[in-house]
């Protein structure tokens, strides 16, 4: 049996105003896989991601993290997941180090591991000198880096990223891609949304394209792009009705 880290089963989300944001979506991401989640603005990507990480309630369908339902075992699922939203608003009133220590406490990371990992990731993202300063004084990119360090700290089984490359400098983007591969090679999975199709094509093992809340196509990058590029496949989907 395949080791499914993320299973979205017939997930639908309807907002109180009656708008159906996501309709009967099913996606599976296996261990070691980087899965790109692609769609136009307002397609339902963030709505799906928020449900996957348990920050948004939903009634139809189910989402399983390593076989556990986010609905019935939210704490267990969250303990295996790390999430970075598209615009990570962190606590402006704490220092970067205090934030990372807080996240380490939340995920029960030993003192030895947190020291080692914070040191390593801070060095990787060039943030070692800035961790003693208040997050409020950071630029958008620096906040993004601290959020990423916080996400990698507990070596999550599932890493969920919403537009992770926005605001990152080229060097940090490069290191992030390396860390994503490294995490997946240790048996974790990554589910991330992006609008940068070149990145998705190079980085992902599989992709899902959604439009108006419905899955249009899903599969390995090779399957989805066919003989063209991922951009060609996406444009074909974007410009034509389902």
């Amino acid at each position: 049996m395949a080791n499914n880290i993320l299973e979205i089963r017939n997930y639908s989300k309807t907002y109180p105003n009656g708008k159906k944001a996501v309709d009967d979506l099913s996606i599976t991401v296996q261990a070691g896989e980087i899965h790109g989640f692609i769609g136009l603005n307002g397609a339902g990507k963030t709505t799906t991601i928020r449900a996957v990480v348990g920050v948004m309630d939903f009634s139809q369908g189910d989402i399983l993290i390593d076989g556990h339902s986010i609905k019935s075992e939210p704490v267990l699922c969250k303990a295996m997941t790390a999430y970075i939203p598209d615009n990570p608003d962190l606590y402006d009133y704490v220092t970067g180090m205090q934030y990372l220590n807080y996240m380490a406490d939340m995920f029960g990371i030993s003192l030895r591991d947190r020291k080692e990992r914070i040191h390593r990731y801070a060095e990787t993202f060039g943030m070692s000198k800035e961790l003693g300063e208040l997050i409020g004084s950071y630029s958008h990119g620096m906040k993004q880096k601290v959020a990423l360090i916080g996400a990698f700290l507990h070596q999550p089984k599932l890493l969920v990223l919403d537009e992770p490359f926005v605001g990152l400098d080229p060097e940090a983007s490069f290191h992030l891609k390396e860390l994503m591969h490294e995490l997946c090679s240790s048996g974790s999975a990554i589910f991330f949304s992006t609008h940068v199709l070149e990145v998705a094509e190079k980085l992902c093992d599989s992709v899902t394209i959604i439009k108006n809340g419905r899955k249009i196509v899903s599969g390995t990058v090779e399957e989805v792009r066919g003989s063209g590029t991922l951009e060609d496949a996406f444009m074909e989907v974007a410009e034509h009705d389902e």
Partner: peptide, 14 residues
């Protein structure tokens, strides 16, 4: 601006 900081000194487990 804070001056320098030391990772080991700043970390505490709870």
């Amino acid at each position: 601006q804070k001056t320098s900081h030391k990772v080991a000194a700043a970390l505490k487990i709870s």
